[in-house]
């Protein structure tokens, strides 16, 4: 698992609804800025900026294809979040089971 600061950067990056929308769009496969922009309600420069944030935290990568860049999603950082959310629920559940075990022992 990555260190906390990297994970927080990823969490911050997907905290923005437009960036999540961009990730949703990229789920269908590799696309250019123009193709992504056509599926959102924001401008192309705005999409480019969001893509740059997502690229900085490793959620998307790009490769040149002729005169344009093609962007695609990278699953690894999302897997790290998944591990984090899993451990969140593990802790909550363990705390409940401990509480319930004690309560069970107290009840005659």
């Amino acid at each position: 698992m990555a260190d906390g600061s990297r994970l927080n950067d990823v969490l911050d990056a997907i905290g923005d609804p437009t960036r999540r929308q961009v990730l949703e769009i990229l789920r269908s496969g590799e696309q250019s800025v123009r193709e992504i922009t056509d599926q959102t309600s924001v401008s192309q420069p705005a999409v480019s900026q969001h893509l740059s944030v997502l690229r900085d935290v490793g959620l998307v990568t790009s490769r040149p294809d002729g005169r344009r860049n093609l962007y695609r999603i990278e699953p690894a950082p999302l897997d790290e979040i998944r591990v984090w959310v899993e451990s969140f629920w593990d802790t909550a559940l363990a705390a409940f089971v401990e509480h319930a075990n004690k309560a069970a022992k107290e009840t005659p």
Partner: peptide, 10 residues
């Protein structure tokens, strides 16, 4: 989905 479960003796 993330699925977690545990047994409770109650």
């Amino acid at each position: 989905p993330i699925i977690r479960s545990a047994h409770v003796p109650r």
